[in-house]
Design a protein around this nucleic acid. Sequence first.
DNA 1: CCGCATCCGAGTGGATACTG
DNA 2: CAGTATCCACTCGGATGCGG
Lengths: 114, 114
Amino acid sequence: MKKLEHHECKSALLPVRDTLDIIGGKWKILILISIWEGNKHFREIERSIPKLSTKVLSSELKDMEANQLITRTVINGFPVRTEYEATAYSETLKSVIAELHSWGVNHRKKILGQ
Amino acid sequence: MKKLEHHECKSALLPVRDTLDIIGGKWKILILISIWEGNKHFREIERSIPKLSTKVLSSELKDMEANQLITRTVINGFPVRTEYEATAYSETLKSVIAELHSWGVNHRKKILGQ
DNA sequence: CCGCATCCGAGTGGATACTG
DNA sequence: CAGTATCCACTCGGATGCGG
């Protein structure tokens, strides 16, 4: 993708903020990765991420469902079980995460090597 | 850059979080863009970004200086003036921002088109 | 097992005033 | 002009308990 020029930055802001709102929190990427790794159930996801409370997990999952990164399926029976799964669409975030990762690796090298 | 595979995600997390910490706040990208657009002085930057208080601006600028995205130069005289400038290094964020932007544009299209 | 409701403390961020 | 200090409202998020 081409680089943004300075004069284009202002108009670029809203979508940038949208994206940051969606993946920028403290937990969303962790949760997404946990699901990518195969965790499907609420407690499974909770246990896979230290320090994450049920309240926060619950609200994060709702956001992510609204943004179509995951699906939520209730399986009737007793006890009730719920399955969360990553959507194909969520895969499109991988290039974004890859870019964040790449910059972060380089930045860490730069800051520490001084 | 190649896509991340699932099993690589865990090790990818720290650098991703680093990057999000650096640009993920509510203001940092706005401030960076304001400086890219030519605003150099504290009050100039403040006035260019609605709702941004001096306290927050002050602390954000410190973070950004620590991360070498900007430089701070005090010009003696009276009244004292200070110049903030974006570093060449800060330009490396443009591809990250471009990726966030591109995903955000597409996401907005997807969400609204329903 | 799933996940919401409630309570509550800590931290964030806004407004304003003030110093150098 | 540049930035800090203070006060305060508000939000966030942790702990816990409960209902389905």
